[in-house]
Amino acid sequence: MGMRKIDKTQILATEYQLWIKQLKGQTHPKYSSSHKYYKDVLISLLYCQQGLCAYTEILIAEEERYRPENFDKKGRYIDKGKPESSFSAQLDHFNSHLKEKYGWGWNNFFAISDKINIEKGTQTVDDILKPDSPEYDPHKLLGYNEKRHIFHVHPDIEDESLQIRIENMILVLGLNQGTIKDNRRAYLEPKKKSLALGKEIEPVYQFFTAFEMIEEKL
């Protein structure tokens, strides 16, 4: 996963939280991006994910957009309009097969970059790289080729069926997708060079996992 493990326990959208609790066991109302809770869920997730795409860790929202103060007392998001950005945030159903009947389930939601969402589509997923699953540990499952800025299966994993499962998910989640990789390279390469020369660098605000893996090798 391009992402550190995500903790989704704090939900800012409390009205949505209550609503979904009451639906327990029932089929959910139809999911739609024009639904009144769409933004509530999206912004709550951005808060848990620190404004980063859950899979690729590219920045998709500035902090001011997902601050707790942006929710009113009832736990509804106060919409102030969306600033223009080249990587816009969208809601993703990790397992798209759950979308029809349980389209509003919190556990299946992540905020991700629109660039990834289109390509991920309805491809079958494997929980092995689900960013909030309890067993998930990117440092045991993934490796990072820092020369080419490409995520790959951890070099120590020898079990071929496990390799295939992880590799498939790297592709499904778009970790090496063209634009994402291009942006990651542009962002991390100067930092990598500075670190190699022993220079101080500004703290990173995106691509944390890739950066940590670069640091480990230096």
């Binding site: 490796g143 080729n145 490409i150 790959h152 299966v153 070099p155 590799e167 790297i170 090496n176 997708q177």
Partner: peptide
Amino acid sequence: NRALTKAARLETV
């Protein structure tokens, strides 16, 4: 992408 991901791993190994 599949080829890239495989080749990048082989390079790391």
